[in-house]
Design a protein around this nucleic acid. Structure first.
Lengths: 221, 221
DNA sequence: TATTATTTTTAGATTAGCTTAAAATTATTG
DNA sequence: CAATAATTTTAAGCTAATCTAAAAATAATA
């Protein structure tokens, strides 16, 4: 059994996600910022998670997940992404609304439920934001993508993955009618602020700020 | 917004349900038994719910729901029963397993989710145990049933509703292959212990203890 | 109706998860 | 490399939700 509180599960999930961009080691302040808690609260919880052997924590240095902590984090993400898929595909939620609800649903405790949802949805490999859905055993298909900010000019890409936890960003994508799997080609890039002019599906031209491009990930065709 | 904790929602739900058999007034000990908490904890919480105007509580006498408390209780039951329907119909859970999972799902906070689930399921009127599902506005279709213990001999009934919160009872129903909408006729009743011999769907004869019959509700044809 | 039994409440504690303010450690830089 | 800045931890305290044990109120009964 897992038997962790929703709060503890969230810590593990965020340590996993913040660790991905680092070498696995996460700083107290980064976690505090993500969780919107004080740094003191984080220190407190890290000590408790350490006692439970879910993280290895070294004072003033940082925290990383143990094997078991990582497995739990992956299962929480699995649940989150399966629920997002259900909300978007079956219930027709727009993608800017699903994250918040999935944040609650990911803490429902029932292995059987997760597996049945997975089956019901047809074992999806990616969620509505393009994030990979870990399988029952925790295997994750790592998508081979680059950030749009690092993409080359005049080269054809496909929008594969977008940042899922900012509803305002997703609303913006709705507004400019940009969707996953759209074809994207960068026509030119402003040197001053890195704003880019892109062409979508060989038709529409739109301007994208650097801030927006940082939340978009593409695959070369 | 509702903004109550899962614990508070559970209190309201159980006050509603225990109040149904009484005149709406629920005793501290009955709640304590249902919640599997000490009576002292219940007293404590009742005072807090009273401060929030969700219940009216009179020391040493009992507690009942206020109008707003009742509305919340009904919405929690609505969610519980919609989720049970989804778990049984769409995910093919057996009915002895759905209650426990729905106990968690009923506390997910999103009005839009509830309404979309309702629509997705085709606005069901009853859940898999035969309990009525309140609509968006809190209207409940009161089913016209009697307890099997009060049914007449040699009269034809239809099994309409079973007690949903005892998994062992539901497992037992699975075993004896009794389902909702089955035809039931009582052939004879033992005077000593009220055990009854019934005939199901004009075919099978089975023996039912008084304990079991107390959890079954039927409608005359 | 006086005594006993039952139910309910009060009092005092505990735990998880959070806070702010002060102290300690580590990092930066003139 | 010493002073300053930034980060992190410690200390002390709060709230929600639980508990046990003792006291108080109500109900049952001899």
């Amino acid at each position: 059994m897992n038997n962790l509180s929703a709060v503890e599960e969230n810590y593990l999930k965020y340590i996993y996600q913040l660790g991905e961009t680092q070498n696995g080691i996460v700083k107290t302040n980064d976690l505090a910022y993500k969780l919107e808690h004080s740094a003191a609260s984080v220190t407190d919880m890290l000590k408790r998670l350490s006692d439970k052997k879910l993280v290895s924590y070294k004072k003033y240095y940082g925290v990383s997940l143990t094997k078991i902590g990582q497995q739990i984090a992956i299962q929480v993400m699995r649940k989150h992404r399966l629920w997002e898929t259900f909300l978007a595909k079956n219930l027709k939620f727009t993608w800017d609304k699903i994250h918040e609800i999935a944040e609650q649903l990911e803490h429902i405790q029932s292995d059987e439920l997760v597996d049945k949802m997975d089956e019901y949805l047809g074992y999806p490999k990616f969620d509505p934001h393009g994030d990979p859905i870990p399988d029952k055993h925790g295997n994750i298909l790592v998508p081979n993508v680059i950030c749009l900010t690092d993409a080359k000019l005049k080269k054809l890409y496909i929008l594969q993955n977008v940042n899922d936890d900012s509803a305002s960003f997703l609303k913006y994508l709705n507004k400019i009618q940009l969707q996953l799997n759209d074809k994207i080609k960068i026509i030119e890039k402003e040197e001053f602020d890195e704003t880019m002019l892109i062409i979508v599906n060989d038709k529409r031209q739109i301007t994208i700020s650097n801030d927006a491009a940082q939340n978009m990930f593409v695959k070369s065709v």
